[in-house]
């Protein structure tokens, strides 16, 4: 596509689009520093709500549970998702491949209430017939998150695998490397950035999930979104604004760092190709 200077028309549209995307977030951040209890009336600058947030044991406990689940779910999803991408991109046709790709792509769009309900009913049925899982909680949330995160990781990783020049792998194979060695010494280092972004995507998806976790959770496992949701239902609270600001800050830093690394890699690639 023709690239170059943006026309005035495009600039206008982009500005409006970004205003729409960012205005609510910026308002949220500003009001997190509001002294008043009223979320929409400015009464002076204060860190009061941050203090209250960090003294709220329920919020902190829920955040800790969510973080643990997100790290473990993202890690498992990267392993499963990478295996799934290899199956889809590198292996030829086999019996049941269509079913396999369907099961990978369907979770991307499946309404969360359906996924949540179906997994809960599975866990209940398993508990009845097999006696496992006896109780729902972190483990069942982890299984649910691994399942839908795998689909997202598979999409990210397989698009990278497709771009990968197969001749490099073939060269290693011709030189006598066994397939597992080719994978770990050649393929894996090349697709590592995709694994990293897949992991991050899975991590944020897991951290963000309210609906599925609400279905499959049990007593004692309240995740951060569940905690936020129940406190928002009681009414709007500036403490949530403080939490939102922290989440937005962390996400922005992570994305900026990722972008900066990608840019540096890009510049290096250009320099190498020029020299």
């Amino acid at each position: 596509m023709q690239t170059g200077k943006l026309s005035n028309w495009s600039k206008w549209f982009l500005s409006l689009g970004f205003f729409f995307l960012y205005a609510p977030i910026i308002i949220l951040v500003i009001f997190s520093f509001n002294k008043s209890e009223l979320v929409t009336v400015w009464a002076g600058f204060s860190f009061r709500w941050y203090g209250e947030l960090f003294r709220d044991p329920q919020m902190l406990g829920a955040a800790w549970i969510s973080l643990k689940i997100a790290v473990l779910a993202a890690s498992a999803a990267v392993v499963l998702g990478t295996m799934a991408s290899i199956v889809m991109v590198r292996m030829g046709a086999f019996k049941g491949k269509t079913a396999f790709t369907s099961m990978i792509t369907a979770p991307l769009v499946m309404p969360e209430v359906i996924t949540g309900l179906s997994l809960l009913l599975l866990f209940v049925a398993m508990g009845q017939t097999l006696g496992w899982p006896g109780q729902r909680g972190m483990l069942t949330i982890w299984i649910a998150h691994v399942t839908f995160c795998t689909a997202f990781v598979a999409v990210v990783v397989s698009s990278r695998l497709q771009e990968l020049d197969e001749s490099i792998e073939e060269a290693a194979q011709d030189l006598g490397a066994p397939p597992w060695k080719v994978f770990f010494l050649v393929t894996l280092p090349i697709i590592a950035p995709a694994l990293m972004s897949g992991w991050l995507l899975a991590f944020t998806l897991s951290l963000d999930d309210l609906v599925i976790a609400s279905f499959v959770s049990g007593p004692g496992a309240t995740t951060l979104p569940m905690q936020v949701f129940s406190s928002v239902r009681m009414g709007i609270s500036p403490q949530i604004n403080a939490l939102a600001t922290i989440i937005i800050g962390l996400a922005s830093i992570a994305v900026l760092v990722a972008w900066w690394i990608a840019r540096r890699e890009g510049i290096r690639a250009v320099k190498i190709s020029e020299s």
Partner: peptide, 19 residues
């Protein structure tokens, strides 16, 4: 910049509109 908001919490972005 387009993708950044979706890396923050969905729930919180909806909550922003309530206010």
């Amino acid at each position: 910049l387009v993708m950044l908001p979706s890396w923050t919490s969905f729930l919180i972005r909806i909550y922003a509109w309530v206010g």
